[in-house]
Write a protein that binds this DNA or RNA. Structure first.
Length: 471
RNA sequence: GGCCUCGUGGCGGAGUGGUUACGCAGCGGAUUGCAAAUCCGUGUACUCCGGUUCAAUUCCGGACGAGGCCUCCA
């Protein structure tokens, strides 16, 4: 285990802080995962990539077996119910819901894997943790932080003196700006639902407060406690979750447990725009991960997962991203350069990334500075015949979650196309006979098939040809 | 209205109280039969207005602009 100093920006204090784990033998992080009612969009993808990068960094610093990463799957939600009714009107509700959540969750796993994300240590589902949620709600009621009224159990924000610390807002501010009609049954307009009653045609679980379903925030409080404990190291998610979601998670967890904190560090990734505009379905610039991977909807072509990954990471995780075709093209060029420079290395499990790369990442996930370090290593790898630089570059790319040859040949081209070897041999023969027209004819013919030929001289000074498949 | 971020060259994006990355694209050169790949070299910048300072892109204040949140959206 190294002692590399790690610093992370903490939303709670709005400063970058030195990170000190509660237990260096088990560093614990939680990220709010998807609500599985629809395919994940690229904004969801950014969140997955950012926290995957953090996970990888922690594993590198503290050891792969000393980090626990929990990313939940929210599979109880009114949007899911609505989707189930819409898409499967003929099925019983429970079955329809299962169809929606299973299908969407499976697609999510596929998507984030394509983006180069490691599997989290645990991916709990909300519906497997209903009892834990009810226990938390029970504790909140018992401690006087929640009350039952009009078929709902509500959290009482006024029962918590420092409610609003994370988002930096106080209850008066909220009231001043609130244009929402105050629900009459709420003691304070900012009180939020922990449990709500379900109608017969809505999914529900029996509870001390009647058959119902959980509110939005309680699931993360329950699942993080179950897998990470009452106090853990890092909690993350998208910027929009600061309020109300994370604020309310903190309120629930701390008040239920009587603790001073829920997680020590709160991290939030920035949003993205698409071609300069807010991503929205009505503007027609809304893209799912699967769409980018498998269709030509964005820029008229498919985009490999690790190009998307680099395109996201090119910008610091807290900054907004303008997601554009040009950005992806640059990401592709750059990644291909790295892959070319690292080409031909057989990596072993023990090959470690370069220190400079890890060090830059350790400074609040400074991926961009790490990428500059990669450039330096790549230059070195290209310059001398230094195998060590090549190996180091390859190990660094692997560490960062990138493939080593994904852009050098596509899957289907990986197997050498038939006749290619013969064509190359023919061309070499023509070249040696100085029949350049014939040689160029063969080269152009192959180019049309998406195969680029590159000539070089081997150590003996003989002309050789290698090839690369384009896209 | 309240609360947060943020404004660097064609683009992406670091960084610094004075010497000013790096990458993409462009341009020039080496190499090549010609290419590709690779290497070497190279131009353009710090939103505006005040203030502090010997000196500000960097610190402070203001303006303008962009983005996010303010009850279920990553």
């Amino acid at each position: 285990m190294t002692t590399l100093p790690l610093s992370l920006y903490n939303t709670l204090t709005r400063t970058k802080e030195r990170f000190v784990p509660i237990d260096a033998h088990n560093v614990r992080m939680y990220a709010c995962g998807p609500t599985v009612y629809d395919f994940a969009h690229i904004g969801n993808g950014r969140m997955a990539i950012v926290f995957d990068l953090l996970f990888r960094l922690l594993r590198q610093v503290y050891g792969a077996d000393h980090v626990t990463y929990v990313r939940n799957i929210t599979d109880v939600d009114d949007k899911i119910n609505a989707r189930a009714l819409r898409d499967h009107p003929d099925l019983p509700l429970n079955e329809a819901i299962r169809k929606v959540t299973e299908g969407t969750a499976a697609q999510y796993q596929k998507d984030v894997k394509a983006l180069g994300c490691l599997e989290p240590t645990v991916q709990p589902r909300a519906t497997d943790n209903i009892a834990e949620m009810q226990a938390l709600i029970g504790a909140l009621v018992q401690r006087g932080h929640a009350y039952a009224t009009a078929g709902e159990v509500l959290f009482s924000v006024s029962s918590m003196p420092d409610y609003g610390k994370l988002s930096g807002r106080n209850l008066e501010d909220n009231l001043a700006g609130a244009r929402i009609a105050v629900d009459a049954h709420k003691q304070n307009p900012a009180d939020f639902v922990l449990w709500k009653q379900s109608a017969d045609n809505e999914p529900g679980w029996d509870s001390p407060w009647g058959r119902g379903r959980p509110g939005w925030h309680i699931e993360c409080s329950a699942m993080s406690e179950r897998y990470l404990g009452q106090l853990f190291d890092i909690h993350g998610g998208g910027l929009d979750l600061i309020f109300p979601h994370h604020e309310n998670e903190i309120a629930q967890s701390r008040c239920a447990h009587g603790t001073h904190a829920m997680a020590n560090v709160w991290m939030h990734n920035g949003f993205l725009q698409v071609e300069g505009q807010k991503m929205s379905k009505s503007l027609g610039n809304f893209y799912t991960i699967a769409q980018l991977l498998e269709t030509g909807d964005f820029g008229g072509r498919k985009w490999p997962g690790d190009v998307l990954r680099l395109g996201m990471l090119m910008t610091h995780y807290r900054e907004p991203i303008d997601f554009t075709v040009k950005r992806l093209e640059e990401a592709e060029t750059r990644l291909r350069d790295w892959q070319r420079a690292a080409q031909g290395v057989e990596l072993s499990d023990t090959d470690a990334p370069d220190d400079s790369v890890v060090r830059e990442l350790a400074d609040d996930l400074g991926f961009h500075r790490a990428s500059v370090a990669l450039d330096v290593i790549a230059k070195k790898a290209n310059r001398d015949d230094g195998l060590s630089a090549k190996r180091c570059l390859a190990a660094s790319l692997r560490f960062l979650g990138f493939g080593l040859d994904t852009l050098l040949a596509t899957e289907s081209d990986r197997a050498e196309p038939p006749h290619l070897a013969a064509a190359i041999a023919d061309r070499l023969a023509a070249l040696n006979a100085k029949q350049f027209a014939e040689a160029d004819r063969i080269r152009n013919e192959l180019a049309e098939q998406g195969i680029a030929l590159m000539d070089y001289k081997d150590e003996a000074g003989n002309r050789q040809t290698r090839w690369e498949a384009k896209r």
